[in-house]
């Protein structure tokens, strides 16, 4: 079975995010003076082949922990779902 995975990686709370801060500082000039707490991150999307959703989730979690995120400074959040056109009934 084929699963669609999305991993979001963000700087952990307490780690300065100069990109987020810079964006937030620019917003009032564009009329968005009601926006607070801007934090940046990255999103990774890929497919993973596995026998079931639990296995797929474990593989994605392992990939996120080992490579996509550096646990010293980053948190990750993941979503795994069956690919609609994976050919399975």
């Amino acid at each position: 079975m084929r699963f669609a995975a999305r991993v979001e990686v963000r700087l952990r709370p307490g780690i300065a995010d100069p990109e987020g801060t810079t964006i937030e500082r620019a917003l009032p000039a564009l009329g968005f003076d009601d926006v607070r707490g801007v934090r940046t991150g990255r999103s990774f999307r890929f497919q993973v082949d596995a026998t079931d959703v639990e296995t797929a989730r474990r593989r994605v979690q392992a990939l996120a922990d080992r490579l996509l995120a550096n646990p010293v400074i980053e948190d990750s959040e993941l979503e795994v779902s069956l690919e609609p056109d994976s050919g399975e009934p």
Partner: peptide, 17 residues
């Protein structure tokens, strides 16, 4: 070396980008 775990800690972008 930090990414490899041979030294502790990590790096982020410079203050002020």
């Amino acid at each position: 070396l930090t990414e490899a775990g041979l030294l502790p800690g990590a790096f982020v972008k410079n203050r002020g980008l």
